[in-house]
Simulated assay, not measured.
Amino acid sequence: MGCFFVLLAGVFPRFALLIVWIARPRMVDAAFDSWIWPLLGIVFLPFATLMYVILYTGGGGLSGSDWFWVVFAGLLDVVHWASSAVSRRQAPGYPGSVQA
């Protein structure tokens, strides 16, 4: 059950951004000039990209407090990448793993 929860947590922001992109393409088009930036966001920084699209207001961009949430989501993305790298290093049989 724990593995299923981790799988859902890793897939959720990518799936949510994809659904927003399909259901409300104007939101994504207003936030980004081309299709490459949201695609890179889905791959590398899904939480931050999702927050940016949701908080972006047409013409005005993001205000000061909105940037806090985007940066916070970016930190969550970085923590997610780092935790998966650490857990991979501790896996038995992984080359270079640290065994106690």
Rank of each mutant, 00 (worst) to 15 (best):
L40A: 14
W37C: 02
I22D: 10
H80A: 15
V70L: 07
W35T: 09
G41K: 07
F4C: 13
G64L: 13
L39W: 06
A23F: 05
C3M: 13
S63L: 09
P46E: 01
G74L: 14
L7I: 02
M27L: 15
C3S: 13
L7W: 12
G2F: 05
G64V: 07
G74N: 01
L50T: 03
F12P: 00
L62K: 04
L18D: 05
F12Q: 06
Y52E: 04
V6E: 14
V78I: 15
M1W: 15
I42T: 09
L55R: 00
F47A: 04
P25C: 04
S63A: 15
V20N: 02
R26I: 07
W35G: 11
L50Q: 08
S83Q: 09
A31L: 09
A9W: 14
G41F: 05
V20R: 04
A16F: 15
G58S: 11
L45Q: 08
R14W: 14
P25M: 08
D29A: 08
I54H: 04
V53R: 00
S65E: 15
M51Y: 09
L7K: 08
P46V: 01
L8K: 05
P38S: 06
V20P: 09
W69R: 02
D77M: 01
F68V: 14
W21P: 00
L55P: 11
G59V: 05
L40C: 13
L75P: 00
W81T: 00
S84A: 06
L76H: 02
L62V: 05
R24M: 07
G60A: 13
V6W: 12
L7N: 02
